[in-house]
Design a protein around this nucleic acid. Structure first.
Length: 265
DNA sequence: ATGGCCCGTAGAACGGGA
């Protein structure tokens, strides 16, 4: 079973990229963030024509998350949850559903804008509430994957220029402590379960030739629960879509789980 | 040295992103 996550920075603009990527990488479940689409405009029909069913939670202009899954797997999106029941929030940043025996969550963590700002405070509170909710979720569904744009570079190895980013938003100690709190729930950063090429990131600024110079951050993650950690076979970041014309500034990340696929085949 | 891009909502710039 393959599960991926991708911040597409407008699904309206990026739909051709998503369709093309899914054709080349037919993952079982894809978590999307920053769809920036109201539900009435979600391209469910186009995705269905490409073989993917979808559930989604959007709003005008900002945020918006979705889960896509292969129609030919025969799954329904069970126990659909939109938002964090423990954190009332106008912003559409969370969606969860169970596919087969794996619960999948697509999360768009707030950016935080700048350390000390109101948005930063909201980010920390949002992350505290996320941890509280995930504790419940893991207890109810031990086989769980949280894919998303976490807007946190967990360690300096995830930052192209750690000195320049030190204590800045996305890299500050309180944010990294929140990421650590998620790991304390038994979650594991699937990417770091394997030896990886150095200086691999998942986001590059559109400005200053950020991608060409590989001035990036690794802020998109797939966290797997303890019950699933032993099933993880691979995890990688695909830079290819970032090279296409009019790309998202984020790259997709994919995790492969072992025995579950055979069990559902 | 500063800001340098992209998206949505606009229907011109501006907020937001990271």
């Amino acid at each position: 079973m393959k599960i991926a996550t991708w911040n597409v920075n407008s699904l309206k603009v990026r739909l051709p990229h998503v369709l093309g990527w899914l054709e080349a990488n037919p993952v079982d479940v894809l978590c999307l963030q920053e769809t920036k689409l109201v539900d009435e405009k979600f391209p469910a029909a186009e995705l269905a024509a490409a073989g993917y069913r979808s559930v989604f939670s959007g709003q005008p202009t900002y945020n918006g998350v979705a889960l896509l899954w292969r129609a030919d797997r025969g799954w329904d999106a069970r126990d659909l949850t939109v938002g964090n029941p423990r954190f009332p929030d106008e912003q559409k940043r969370l969606i969860a559903a169970t596919f087969g025996d794996v619960r999948v969550i697509s999360a768009y963590v707030p950016n935080g804008q700048a350390v000390g700002s109101d948005k930063y405070d909201y980010k920390l509170r949002w992350l505290d509430a996320l941890a509280a909710w995930l504790s419940d979720e893991i207890a109810a569904a031990p086989r769980l994957v949280v894919g998303g744009d976490y807007n946190i570079a967990p360690a300096d190895a995830d930052v192209h220029d750690p000195a320049a980013w030190a204590d800045q938003v996305l890299c500050s100690v309180p944010e990294r402590e929140r990421f650590g709190a998620l790991l304390s729930l038994g979650l594991t950063d699937a990417y770091r379960m394997f030896e990886q090429p150095p200086k691999t990131y998942s986001w590059w600024d559109y400005r200053q030739l950020g991608f060409q110079k590989n001035r990036g951050l690794r802020i998109d993650h797939l966290l797997v629960s303890a019950a699933l950690a032993g099933s993880v076979r691979a995890c990688s970041i695909d830079r290819a879509p970032r090279k296409l014309p009019q790309p998202s500034d984020h790259a997709p990340v994919t995790v492969e789980l072992g025995p579950a696929e055979a069990a559902t085949a």
